[in-house]
Structures are given as C-alpha cells and as structure tokens.
C-alpha cells in the first residue's frame, strides 16, 4: 500500500498545484451551483468533459499494463458514435443503438487483440491500422456528414442526463472505475496482466494463458472506447465522425503515463491514471477559463510546459540528481 501511495504522490502534487493556482487566481473555479436539479461548476465540468478521456485512460492502463498500447481508441469512439446515430436514424430502439455501438467497440477490440495475439503484430502497429481505418469507417457510416440525433431522444441522457444532480457521464465513469478495480484487484486478472507485461515468456511457462488475457484486455478497451464515443455523441446529440475522439488516444496515453504507469508494462495503477486524466482536463478547463486576452496559439505551449513539469516531477533520476547537487552545495 505504501508503495502505491509513493507512486501516486507526484501526480497528486501536480493536481494540487494546478488546483492551487486556480484557487489563487480564479476562485470561482470552486463554485458549485444547482440549475434545474443539475449540479454545475468548473469542477463538475472537469469531470463531465473529462469522462471520455477518463474511460479511455482506464482501459489504456490495462493495455499498457500488458506492455501493449492502443492507438485506435479515438477512432473507435467515432465509429461507436456513428453506429449509434445511424441506428437511431433508422428508428432503432435506444437500447439497441447502444448495444450496437458497444458491440462495434467490442468487435474493434477483438480485431486489435487478434492482430496482437494471433498475428503477433506489435501493438503499436496493430492498433495504428484501426486508428487510421476506423475514422474512415465512421465517415463511411455518416457519409461524411454530421449525423444528428433527435434532441429529445432518450439516447442523449448518456451525455446530458442527470441522476440525483450528478451528470450521467460522471456516473458512467465511476461505475466503470469501480467495476474495473474489483475485476483487477479481487480476481487474478490484475496479477496476470502485470505478469504478462513484466515477462511474457516467464508467465507463459508459469501457466498464465497469455493470448486470451491479452485479447480480453483489448476487448475491454474497445468497449470502454465505445462507451466514451456514446457519451461524446449524446453530449452534442450528433455523431461527428471527423472530430469525435480525435487525438484522444494521445490524451489517454498521457494520462496513464502522468499517473505513474510505465509504458514498458508490468505494473499499473488505475487510480494514478484517473488522476492523470483529471490533471489533463483540469489544465484544459483552466486555460479556457483564463483565456481573456491570451492568444489561442499559446494554449498548446502552456499545456506542453505543464506536462513537462509534471513528467520532470516524476523523474526519479532528476530528483536524485537535484538532491545530489543540493547536498554537494551544502
């Protein structure tokens, strides 16, 4: 437990710094209000808008835990949104549209997993294929247009609904996080994932069924990405195949890395990735809240600078170097 805590201390410090900055310069960041039974405020916005990346980060943590990576999650989001919107356009019941989208995500995950496990293609290449082709598939489904979903459709609850004042995307994320935590920590799945990421050969000799577990992890990722795509589409009541999930795979990977999971696999922390994703979204919302007279071209530079600082904070080499220099100067 203490090692987990030590792992999380730097991401937590970065988040605290970011929130502290807001507290000092922008106190309304912490205001909460209730509009029409809906909890509202910047913090809620962070979680609500961050829900897709949070979901992606959860799945990505497991994928990276096995030593893999999934670049196709943004494209899967676009496909899921497109499938749901197309199904709704054909007057399919909402439940069926959701099932079809999640099924498409699962199929995409199986595709990725099969390329990795059966064909032995390195994950970065295997998932690159779907990253590139998936958005094309989504554009084919929508015929290159933004497919609108009726604004009064029950489907939109996924993105805009509120239960007991809490936006539904946040609840979906919480449910997924809880479910996954139980799955990986109360069953042996987490152990197997870390074993595969640590040493695939050794775990195979130890009797771990590497192929099926890998496949399951990519499948889970596909379903989570589809859920993120559903939230995205329901939020704006439209499937935007060109923009939905665009570059979010990079946000998700960054969240995992900021959270302290090594890209080499073998050890992962879901909580860390959650904190990482919250850091990224807090940063976006902070920049938007401040954007008074700041040229928009600076957005990316500021983000890059903050991410650099967070990564440097986490670098044990750098910390050792700094302590050594400091001691020598004493």
């Amino acid at each position: 437990m203490s090692s987990t805590l030590r792992q999380l201390i730097w991401p937590l410090a970065a988040l605290a710094l970011l929130l502290g900055f807001n507290a000092a310069f922008h106190p309304s960041f912490f205001h909460f209000q209730i509009h029409d039974g809906r909890l509202s405020g910047s913090i809620i916005d962070v979680l609500n808008q961050g829900a897709p990346v949070l979901l992606l980060a959860l799945g990505m943590t497991l994928v990276i835990g096995t030593g893999g990576i999934d670049l196709s999650v943004g494209a899967i989001m676009a496909v899921a949104g497109a499938v749901a919107a197309a199904a709704l356009r054909e007057h399919a019941p909402v439940a069926l549209a959701i099932a079809a989208a999640l099924g498409a995500g699962a199929a995409a995950g199986v595709w990725n997993g099969s390329l990795v496990t059966l064909a032995g293609i390195p994950p970065i290449i295997a998932t690159l294929i779907l990253m590139v082709a998936g958005r094309g598939v989504a554009q084919l489904i929508t015929h290159g247009e933004t497919l609108l979903i009726k604004s009064d459709s029950a489907f939109n609850v996924i993105g805009r609904g509120v239960i007991l004042g809490v936006p539904v995307p946040i609840l979906i994320f919480l449910a997924a996080a809880l479910g996954l935590s139980i799955l990986v920590r109360l069953t042996a799945l987490g152990l197997f994932i870390e074993a595969i990421g640590g040493n695939e050969q050794a775990s195979r000799y130890a009797g771990v069924r590497v192929g099926p577990i890998r496949l399951a992890v990519y499948l889970l990722m596909g379903v989570l990405a589809a859920a993120a795509g559903l939230i995205d589409a329901a939020d704006i009541a439209a499937a935007d195949a060109n923009n939905s999930g665009l570059y979010l795979e990079l946000d998700a990977i960054l969240a995992v890395v900021i959270g302290g999971t090594a890209l080499t696999g073998g050890r992962f922390t879901l909580l860390g990735s959650i904190i990482g994703a919250i850091i990224i979204q807090t940063l976006s919302t902070t920049i938007l809240s401040f954007g008074r007279n700041m040229p928009v071209e600076l957005n990316l530079v500021i983000k890059a600078a903050v991410v650099l600082v967070v990564c440097l904070l986490q670098s044990s080499e750098l910390r050792r170097l700094l302590t050594r220099t400091w001691r020598r100067s004493q």
Partner: peptide, 26 residues
C-alpha cells in the same frame, strides 16, 4: 498528447493517412 493536438499539423497528416487507407479500401 492532448486533445488540442488536433490543432497541430498532425491533424492533416492523420487525416491524410485516413483518407489514403480509405482510398485503398475503396
């Protein structure tokens, strides 16, 4: 990295690759 990477040149690259694959598929 971040969501707003979409602003960068990477966008045209990725879109280009996407369309290229569509071109192969179609």
């Amino acid at each position: 990295m971040m969501r707003s990477f979409r602003q960068s040149r990477a966008r045209s690259f990725v879109l280009g690759v996407t369309f290229a694959v569509c071109a192969i598929a179609l």
